[in-house]
């Protein structure tokens, strides 16, 4: 099994390298450079050129790329021109917020998706299954930003059950219970919005896995042993059907990255996605490249995680 993991890691390394080159190249294609918006417009063109030379902006691209990569590896992505602070520091705050949002969303995705998928698969073609399947169709058809807006309007503004922006009530002392509760309260609505839409794939996938597993021969063997239906489902059908879902976990993370970008914007939640869109609009390129690289690496690691999880839980892969 470790051979598989090592091989998989070795494949990921060039993937990440390639990704970084593409991102760097794209950033270089954008108009302007680090000096464009940073300095006093009265400075002479010669002085600017001097500074460019000093900063290495006139070097060939591969030298520049090497310098940038060297910085990126150490967490140095340069300075945000808008916030006038280190990109890494700025991004780190946001990553923490997004991490919590994602974590709670994943929790809801599975808390909603697993029971619905199991019920739907077990009682397929019964009324309850038709209702659940109906919900998944609606979920597939509804864009997440519209659903986010509507739930914000209904539960945030009309009913006033949830706060309508930010990640925490201002003025609270970090670490106190009140602070944590406030954080959680701010998380609840956006993560539910993500989960309710994001879980439909899980529901459908689990449903079809269960329907598939139900018809396998070894289910007959289990019944012929005299296993009660409950046991047949728990020990044989669910266990075998959830396996591919577990393997899907890594990809779920990748999905979340997409989901959070819209939701954070709508709920004015200070996370990575929110920062990303702001930075694009403000042409804050050093932040944009840093974020693209981080999410890209996140996606690759997610896929890696999926493969490793699958290789651990499935004995057919585990034992060669």
């Amino acid at each position: 099994m470790w051979k598989f993991t090592v091989r998989r890691l070795l494949i990921s390394a060039p993937q990440i390298l390639l990704l970084s080159i593409i991102i760097f190249w794209l950033a270089k294609q954008m108009p302007g450079d680090a000096l464009t918006g940073l300095i006093d417009p009265n400075i002479s063109a010669e002085r600017k050129e001097e500074m460019r030379e000093q900063l290495g902006l006139n070097n060939p691209w591969y030298i520049q790329y090497k310098d940038w990569l060297a910085g990126a590896v150490q967490g140095d992505f340069g300075e945000s021109f808008r916030y006038k602070m280190d990109v890494s520091e700025l991004v780190w705050q946001r990553i923490v917020n997004t991490f919590w949002l994602s974590l709670v969303s994943v929790f809801f995705i599975y808390a909603i998706g697993l029971p619905l998928g199991i019920i739907s698969g077990r009682y397929n073609d019964k009324l309850i299954d038709q209702l659940i399947t109906g919900y998944t169709y609606i979920g597939f058809a509804t864009p997440i930003f519209i659903f986010g807006l509507v739930s914000l309007w209904v539960f945030g503004f009309m009913l006033g059950w949830f706060p309508t922006g930010g990640s925490v009530e201002p003025g609270l002392e970090p670490g106190t219970l009140e602070y944590i509760l406030s954080k959680l309260q701010h998380l609840l609505l956006p993560s539910l919005a993500i989960a309710l839409i994001g879980t439909v794939g899980t529901v459908q996938y689990l449903r079809s896995e269960i329907i598939d597993t139900k018809q396998k021969d070894f289910i007959l063997t289990a019944r012929a042993k005299g296993a009660p239906e409950r046991r047949v489902y728990n020990k044989h059908i669910f266990r075998n059907s959830i396996l591919p879902i577990a393997a899907f976990f890594g990809y779920e993370i990748v999905n979340l990255i997409n989901g959070t970008i819209f939701i954070e914007q709508i709920f004015a939640y200070p996370g990575m996605g929110n920062l990303f869109i702001e930075s694009i609009l403000q042409r804050d390129f050093s932040v944009v490249t840093a974020l693209v690289l981080i999410t890209g690496v996140g996606a690759i690691v997610g896929a890696l995680l999926s493969d490793i999880i699958l290789s651990i839980v499935d004995p057919r892969i585990r034992i060669k």
């Binding site: 396998k216 021969d217 070894f218 007959l220 063997t221 289990a222 019944r223 012929a224 042993k225 005299g226 296993a227 009660p228 239906e229 044989h236 266990r239 075998n240 396996l243 499935d314 004995p315 057919r316």
Partner: peptide
């Protein structure tokens, strides 16, 4: 009813299936 049937299935009454490749749970 299943409850009564399950008392004898696998005990007094049992079955050998056709395809050994699919009749066992692959994950157990």
């Amino acid at each position: 009813p299943p409850k009564k049937l399950n008392k004898i299935r696998g005990k007094e009454l049992s079955m050998i299936f056709q395809d050994p490749l699919t009749a066992l749970n692959p994950l157990m």
